[in-house]
């Protein structure tokens, strides 16, 4: 078999293949649900109800989508320029560290000044975290996939060290957790008494800003050019290494915002289980969105819905909530295959 580019982008292929990917994901996970001894219809109904069946469920899904929008954007931006940032997890955690360092009383400012200061500092921390691997890539030719992956482990151990050392909450009964953020440093809740916080608005606004950067600015054009063909971009006079460095700063900063908003908006302090793999799930979100910043919002809500819905489902049906992770992984693989088949036609001969 061989692949041929489709002469023009066909409307049917653009719609049918992604729909097929979602259908395949549902069919394959139904199989697993049946192996677990439950009825797929009941289980998927419970997942949908748990994700969107009530105001509480919907708000919970949006809350869970917030960090995923940030990490999804981080990955989308980086992958567009073919900078393989698999280290959003590390950037998220270091952003969170900076957030608690500044937000637990070290800086005294009124809320309207304090929150932006913390936010920018967190972004800078995440940006610099990815700048390291980016420079190793451009200067020494070290593959950034491996360095960003290994950094995830280093950073998590570093955070663990901080939480048992300088950042440890003395009143935390010995648990490795940071002190709580002061009230002025916390993001307001969107609805009184609910968990959904201002971080969600920040995430949506960030997606819009990233969309503008990618579509309307020279930097966005250069990033796409580098991602499309670095050699050709260099030949055309684009400073490839500088573009990669700028991409790294933007991507790392966005991932750090996930950590910032989780701490300042939701949790109020830093613990080692702040992120259940949001950095890695961001890769799925970005691919489902086909690296489109606005698509990231939709994809993040979709993925968050699967997680929130599966949690609710596993409480009433006897199917482990790990089914959510399996579904997300399958959707990633089927979607990348679908995107390929959208653009290419398979010829058997």
């Amino acid at each position: 078999m061989r692949l041929e580019p489709r002469p023009s982008s066909s409307m049917a292929a653009t719609l049918l293949w992604p729909a097929g990917a979602i259908l395949a994901t549902i069919l394959l996970s139904s199989l697993l649900v049946m192996i677990a001894g439950a009825s797929p219809f009941t289980v998927f109904w419970l997942v949908v109800k748990g994700a969107a069946g009530s105001q509480f469920a919907l708000l919970e899904t949006f809350t869970r989508a917030t960090p995923l929008i940030f990490t999804g954007l981080a990955v989308a931006v980086a992958f567009r320029a073919r900078l393989w940032n698999i280290g959003a997890e590390a950037q998220l955690y270091l952003g969170a560290v900076m957030t608690v360092v500044l937000g637990t009383g070290a800086v005294a400012l009124p809320s309207a000044g304090l929150i932006p200061v913390i936010m920018i500092a967190a972004m800078l921390t995440g940006a610099l975290t990815l700048l390291g691997p980016a420079i190793l890539k451009t200067r020494f030719g070290v593959d950034e996939v491996v360095t960003t992956l290994l950094l995830n482990f280093i950073v998590l151990l570093f955070v663990s060290m901080l939480l048992e050392g300088p950042l440890k909450d003395p009143t935390g009964m010995g648990w490795p957790q940071s002190k709580r953020m002061i009230a002025d440093a916390q993001l307001p809740r969107l609805i009184k008494g609910k968990r959904l916080h201002f971080g969600f608005v920040l995430a949506v606004v960030s997606a819009l800003i990233v969309w503008v950067i990618m579509k309307k600015t020279t930097l966005g054009y250069e990033m796409r050019a580098v991602g499309h063909n670095a050699e050709a971009a260099r030949f055309a006079g684009i400073p490839v290494n500088r573009v990669i460095a700028k991409t790294a700063l933007l991507s790392g900063g966005l991932a750090a915002l996930a950590g910032f908003s989780e701490v300042a908006g939701l949790k109020g302090n830093l613990t080692l289980d702040l992120s259940p793999g949001y950095g890695y799930t961001g890769i799925v979100v970005a691919m489902l969105a086909m690296l489109n910043p606005l698509g990231v919002i939709v994809a993040a809500i979709f993925v968050a819905g699967i997680f929130v819905g599966a949690d609710a489902m596993s409480r009433s049906a006897n199917v482990p909530s790990y089914i959510a992770q399996v579904m997300v992984a399958i959707s990633l693989l089927t979607m990348v295959a679908a995107i390929m088949l959208m653009r290419y036609r398979v010829r058997w001969r």
Partner: peptide
């Protein structure tokens, strides 16, 4: 299919580990 080896590999890692955890629980 010629899909991105980076993305597919991460996908296989996510799939293999989540399927394992799911199976363990089942």
């Amino acid at each position: 299919l010629g899909l991105s080896q980076h993305v597919t590999g991460i996908g296989v890692t996510l799939l293999a580990s989540s399927l394992t955890y799911f199976s363990y629980r089942i």
